[in-house]
Amino acid sequence: MSQTIESFKLLLENAFSEPLTYLEASQLLTIKVQENQLFATLKTLKETLKFDALIDHAGVDWPNENKIELIYILFSTHHNQQIMVSADIDRNQPTPPSVSSLWAIAEWQEREVFDLLGVTYKNHPDLRRLFLEDNWVGSPLRKDYKDDFILERPW
C-alpha cells in the first residue's frame, strides 16, 4: 500500500520541474507551496495529473504567525488519489489567485472562505459574502473576531 504512495509521489515529482516541499504534519499527502506558485501548481495538478475534483477548500487562521493557511483538497477519480495543497498567505492583505477557472465549484468555496476569513481572491468572478449579510463587519472564523452576540460559556 505504501508502495502506491511512493509511486504516486514519483509521478508527482515528474510532473513538476522544481522539487516539491511536503508538509509532514498532515494525514494526507500534502504539498506546501508559495502564494505565487499556487495557481501554477493547482493548474498542473489538474491538467497533467488529472485531479478533476476540488473536493474541499478551507482556510486556517494563524494570528501569531500573521498568516492565513489555505487548504485545497483535491481528488482524482482517475488515480483514486487524494492530495492536499497548503499555501500560506499574508494575513493582513490576503490576495491569493482564484482557481474558479480550473474548477467551477471553487467560485463558491472561495466565497465561503472570503466570507468567514476575509480572504480576497484575485480574478474571482463574483466575490460576495455567502452566508452572512452584505453589511456584516469582520470575518468570524478569524481567531481575534469579536462581536456582542457571542455568548461566553458562563461556567
Binding site: 505504501s2 504512495i5 509532514e24 494525514q27 488519489q81
Partner: peptide, 8 residues
C-alpha cells in the same frame, strides 16, 4: 501518519 487507510 495513517496514510494507508485513505488509500484505496
Amino acid at each position: 501518519m495513517n496514510q494507508e487507510s485513505n488509500m484505496s
